[in-house]
């Protein structure tokens, strides 16, 4: 069974704005899926559609085979959601908030207190757990939201920009936690973000969305093969033969685009044969960011 399935999913808001355009994709269980795109691309709308907060204008979606349009409560029971607008109560402490949400999910107070304490510890909020939420910083609130989304042991996590507002250390901590949850507990993660570097660190598969349209989806290798197959070879050498058409980028620094790693030994051999001394060789594969920009600039050109 697929964990999350979207079929031809579209959403047109009452004002006429089409936020999501015929998206079809599916997520396997235990997958960390990066749903990437700029602000206003339709990521949050997709999360809301998957949770039954919005009714699709066309198509359908399922979470563990449950249709959120007809049984939103059942979807909510197995999913944890973190979005910018899903805040908690300022007049309660961090711990009280978690226990309250656990009680709505039908978890007994003794059990929820144990789970809440362990989550607060994992998210470095242990010291602040008895402080009212009104004294929490944005980053602390964000981490507590993640703890809230995990308190009922969900099977799917919908995370909308979970690391926005976090300092680099906390962001890394949160990312590591998400990765571990998927790996050890088999939780499926639907991660919406525009922070491509963080996404590349933790996601196993990606979908790139712009203006409501899913541009492409697949693993990093698949995206590279589809969008940007080149590899950039950087070499630090005393000299390179002219026939290799290297681009000089600094003192003894050269760069060339190649199509496959198999070309590297030949290039290195040619440099040595022409009496060049090599100090360093590195092959840079396109990052998610490179692919994203290549893709969006292609899309813009297509529009022109």
């Amino acid at each position: 069974m697929q964990a999350v399935e979207l079929q031809n999913l579209s959403k047109i808001y009452p004002g006429g704005k089409q936020a999501v355009k015929q998206i079809t994709l599916s997520l396997n269980q235990g997958e960390v899926f990066g749903f990437l795109g700029p602000n206003g691309a339709g990521k949050t709308t997709t999360v809301k559609l998957l949770n039954g907060m919005l009714i699709p204008s066309e198509g359908n979606c399922r979470v563990f085979n449950i249709d959120p349009v007809y049984e939103p409560e059942k979807v909510h029971a197995i999913s944890g959601v973190v979005t910018e607008h899903a805040q908690m109560y300022d007049n309660l402490t961090g711990l009280e908030n978690l226990i309250f949400y656990a009680s709505i999910f039908g978890i007994s107070s003794s059990e929820s207190e144990k789970d809440a304490n362990s989550l607060l510890k994992q998210l470095n909020l242990e010291e602040a757990k008895n402080r009212k939420l009104s004294s929490y910083s944005t980053g602390m609130r964000q981490r507590l939201s993640l703890a809230r989304a995990l308190i009922h042991h969900p099977r799917v996590l919908f995370l909308d920009e979970p690391t926005s507002g976090l300092d680099p250390e906390s962001a890394q901590n949160v990312n590591r936690m998400i990765q571990l949850l998927a790996k050890n507990e088999g939780i499926t993660v639907f991660l919406c973000t525009h922070q491509l570097r963080y996404a590349q660190e933790i996601c196993t598969r990606y979908g790139l969305i712009e203006e409501g349209k899913l541009l492409v989806s697949g693993t990093l290798e698949e995206l590279r093969a589809k969008i940007l197959a080149r590899i950039t070879l950087c070499i630090r050498a005393t000299k390179v033969p002219d026939m290799l058409s290297f681009k000089k980028i600094g003192d003894q620094q050269y760069e060339i685009d190649i199509c496959s790693e198999n070309e590297i030994p030949g290039i290195v051999r040619q440099i040595i044969e022409s009496n060049g001394d090599i100090y360093a060789v590195s092959a840079k594969k396109p990052t998610l960011e490179d692919i994203y920009f290549a893709l969006t600039s292609n899309a813009k050109e297509d529009l022109k």
């Binding site: 909510h76 959601v81 899903a86 805040q87």
Partner: peptide, 14 residues
């Protein structure tokens, strides 16, 4: 107003 309603709506209650 305080954006806590959305969180409540994500709970398993109709």
């Amino acid at each position: 107003e305080k954006h806590t309603l959305e969180t409540l709506l994500y709970c398993p209650l109709s």
